[in-house]
């Protein structure tokens, strides 16, 4: 293949454009256009291929692995925070993350996924929020500045990670994913640490911003109602 064409290796002048190949597949039908599908398909693949059948050249990957259930990746995160009871400021002093993501293929990349995910999780826990004026239907937190993702100065210098490196037996190369687990784990760890620092105050919401922490520390009421969101 090359330049939008499929052609013979021995003579590149003999071939078809992708469009011609797709037209040909539709004309031939059957296994070429996806009207006829092999039996050994993952149900999700089968549904997708059925939806596309007859629209072009359709190829599918067989999947006959004996899977019962979906293999999930896990992440355990530990953080230590310092909460300033006079200003409500939270400083994350250190962070350790341990992933169960099956076989580790690329350690550096995995480390980036874990620490990068944790930084996003810290933002969920501390600053990133939607604020709405419900009466006017106006969004207050617009743009990157208003959304307040965390900056380098808000992230601990000391971030460490590890992986259990146990192959997943249902996957041909033993891997599981590790995109999302670090986010939720890091956010929960920070929120739990804040509650612990305040002697067991639970906010039951995210983010927990410095004004909420200060109100809790000063034993003042919060300015939001229990189920009120987007404040």
């Amino acid at each position: 293949m090359g330049n939008g064409r499929v052609f013979l290796k021995s003579d590149s002048s003999k071939g078809l454009t992708f469009a011609e190949a797709a037209q040909q597949a539709i004309k031939l039908g059957g296994k070429y256009s996806g009207k006829e599908l092999p039996k050994e398909l993952n149900p999700i693949t089968a549904r997708a291929a059925t939806g596309l059948a007859g629209q072009g050249l359709v190829g599918v990957a067989k999947d006959n692995l004996p899977i019962k259930g979906a293999p999930f990746a896990f992440c355990a995160t530990f953080v230590q925070v310092e909460v300033d009871l006079e200003t409500g400021h939270v400083e994350i002093k250190e962070c350790v993350e341990v992933a169960d993501c099956g076989t580790v293929i690329h350690p550096k990349n995995l480390g980036n996924q874990l620490t990068g995910g944790a930084v996003q999780g810290f933002g969920f826990a501390l600053t990133e929020k939607h604020v709405f004026d419900t009466k006017l239907g106006l969004a207050a937190t617009k743009g990157l500045h208003g959304a307040k993702p965390l900056t380098f100065l808000d992230v601990p210098l000391d971030m460490q990670w590890e992986a259990v490196n146990q192959p997943d037996k249902y996957n041909p190369v033993g891997v599981k994913g590790i995109g999302e687990p670090p986010l939720g784990a890091a956010a929960s760890a920070v929120l739990s640490a804040i509650s612990d620092a305040l002697g067991g105050v639970f906010f039951n919401r995210t983010p927990v911003t410095c004004d909420m922490i200060l109100n809790a520390a000063e034993k003042k009421p919060q300015s939001y109602k229990p189920l009120e969101v987007n404040v």
Binding site: D84, E86, T87, G88, C210, D211, M212, L214, N215, E218, K220, S223, Y224, V231
Partner: peptide
């Protein structure tokens, strides 16, 4: 106002610290 009463505590504490002169 409705959502900024925390600023009263914050202002009190910051003025307090400015007298203590030592950042905790």
């Amino acid at each position: 106002l409705n959502h900024n009463h925390y600023k009263v505590s914050l202002m009190k504490n910051l003025v307090k610290r400015s007298v203590r002169g030592v950042k905790v």
